[in-house]
Design a protein around this nucleic acid. Structure first.
Lengths: 135, 135
DNA sequence: GCTTGACCCTATATATACTACATGGTTTTT
DNA sequence: AAAAACCATGTAGTATATATAGGGTCAAGC
């Protein structure tokens, strides 16, 4: 399988595959005489693993760590679960921060009725910080 | 006021101030004979405006747009409010995406009891995609 | 007068996860 | 044989800073 076929199969850009190879997440494939990369099913599996982890919001670094766990089948899987727990905690922190932010933005939004000049806009005043609507 | 003083006053890194200047968000200040930047209160105000917008999660590009509105005091402020509304919508989308992600991660987390070898880890299996726990 | 330390300058590299482009070689199709 | 499609490398761009290298300036103390 050449790179274009692998890319299409996995729904990934060709550049992305080469990028993962440079990052050490995909092992360097064999090359044809002309220098073209040739992939086997194993590469496709690894690529799908990466994409699946990415769809869960994991960083490439975290994915690399997971790969190293995969290569140690006998080790206890506590480390994997801890990695996932940390990731979940991180996602929850992000959500919480964004919810705080949303509230602040709503308060700010409530400072203007949309019918003024920029000079008197409550939103702009709020951003300028003269009269702070936030505690 | 020199750059270090401004930085301390605003709680910002010196590099960040120079960065904002390069990005066109802070006007180039006057220079002393030795080339040192000298700032006035106006610059401090503009810097605080930027930081306040940043704390609301706005991009530097959005901040630049807001600055241009500021310079047109007579214009109706609808545009400002629309910018804010778009930003709020974006934040809400982010929250929604992250909540979906959190649920998926929790489901994945439920696939393992933490007491196995990596080989049999339910989380790792889930990530490998053999048996899909997600609809 | 000279050193030390604090401050300032520019330019470049780093981080993330890709994407896009320039330039050129190879294969496949028409 | 020519054209389209594919592949290769290397570089640069995205966003928002932070960090580092290598150097100039200035005030105080010895």
């Amino acid at each position: 399988m050449r790179i274009g076929q692998l890319a299409q199969q996995a729904g990934v850009d060709i550049q992305t595959i080469r990028f993962y190879e440079r990052q050490g997440l995909l092992p360097p494939p064999n090359r044809e005489d002309n220098g073209y990369r040739t992939y086997k099913a194993d590469h496709a599996d690894k690529l799908l693993f990466i994409r699946r982890c990415r769809s869960f919001g994991m960083s490439l670094e975290e994915i690399g760590v997971l790969q190293s766990y995969q290569e140690q089948p006998q080790q206890p899987c506590v480390a994997i679960n801890e990695l996932l727990d940390r990731h979940i905690a991180q996602v929850r922190n992000q959500i919480a921060s964004l919810q705080v932010l949303e509230n602040q933005l709503m308060t700010l939004r409530g400072c203007c009725d949309n019918e003024r000049q920029n000079l008197d806009c409550g939103v702009l005043s709020g951003l300028l910080g003269g009269d702070k609507p936030f505690s």
